[in-house]
């Protein structure tokens, strides 16, 4: 009431413009038109490729290449042919396993490094610790696209070419900066007094880290782990450059290089492969979505 009155006094000629937001949005059609319709469009456009991916992988070939007799937006006779072909006639399970192995190993390696580094920077506090933190953070800004050529040369000279080890050792270059940054923020939120109490009780620094700080930092470590896992699952350019033999390829690389043979693309199998390759990340993510969104937004807020 007072809001409306005040604004009406200021601008008596244009009361509707100056009305409070709730009142301006009062009319239902306006809200639908300017909020729900654009939102629905966004959701539709952002999700359509996934729908299309899913529906293509269940379509028999007859429907896939005939839009005249079948409605392309729906499946008349769903089939598991493409998925069966993918799982039993290609090395897909092997690729999935390799990807999982590389992602898990590099995640653990980078979590180990990042937890120690973040603890040293945030809790052991030494002269110049801020600058070490900044340097690690800046390392994240070095894009893999300018690193893969020298790394390919190094991988060759270390004799690691075409082994999963090449990927496990190089993925932490983009995982550690991110995890460390995330964990520094998380350690900051743990009260320092807890550690001081432990110090007074005669605990050593390592005991404090193991028995006090780490258990309290578990949520932060989990979200850093999710980030690392998805980032290494999605990684493409290193896997493309350092791996040659079919059985050591990761899913994204293998789908693009092994499933496409000749000029005829097996779209059904390609889409099924993409769908299955996206599913583990999507499922993993859906379990931890709250952690994920909050740590993402929390990291940005820092």
């Amino acid at each position: 009431m007072t809001d409306a009155a005040a604004s009406a006094n200021d601008q008596p000629n244009r009361p509707t413009v100056a009305a409070p937001e709730e009142m301006a949005w009062d009319s239902r059609t306006k809200r639908v038109l300017f909020l729900y319709v654009p939102l629905a469009c966004f959701v539709f456009i952002l999700l359509f490729p996934f729908y299309w991916m899913a529906i293509t992988s269940f379509k028999p070939n007859a429907e896939l290449y005939d839009y005249k007799t079948y409605n392309p937006f729906w499946v008349a006779k769903p089939t598991l042919d493409h998925i069966r072909k993918l799982l039993f006639e290609t090395a897909y399970p092997k690729w999935l396993f390799t990807t999982m192995y590389v992602a898990v190993a590099s995640t653990f390696l980078s979590l180990f490094c990042s937890v120690l580094a973040a603890y040293a920077i945030q809790r052991l506090r030494f002269k110049g610790s801020q600058y070490v933190g900044l340097a690690i953070y800046l390392a994240y800004l070095v894009p893999p696209s300018i690193q893969f050529i020298p790394l390919a040369w190094m991988v060759h000279s270390f004799g690691l070419f075409d082994t999963p080890m090449a990927l496990i050792l190089t993925y932490p270059t983009f995982l550690i900066p991110f995890c460390t940054w995330l964990l520094i923020g998380y350690f900051k939120s743990i009260p320092y007094e807890l550690e001081e109490c432990a110090l007074i009780d005669g605990a050593t620094r390592l005991q404090i880290l193991r028995q006090i700080t780490l258990p309290l930092a578990v949520p932060g470590i989990i979200s850093a782990g999710i980030f690392s896992f998805t980032l290494s699952w999605n990684e493409f350019i290193y896997a493309l450059a350092f791996i040659q033999s079919s059985e050591n390829k990761t899913v994204p690389v293998a789908i693009l290089t092994e499933l496409i043979s000749g000029d005829v693309y097996q779209w059904g199998a390609l889409m099924a492969g993409s769908l299955l390759g996206s599913l583990p990340v999507a499922i993993f993510y859906s379990f931890f979505v709250d952690y994920y969104v909050s740590s993402l937004t929390g990291a940005v807020k820092e």
Binding site: F236, L270, M271, G273, S274, S278
Partner: peptide, 22 residues
């Protein structure tokens, strides 16, 4: 809604790129 909206960012880029190719 915000969880769903993040999907294009979560899934491997190459795999959604293949969907775009199609």
């Amino acid at each position: 809604l915000s969880a769903i909206i993040l999907l294009p960012w979560i899934t491997p880029t190459v795999l959604s790129a293949i969907a775009f190719w199609w």
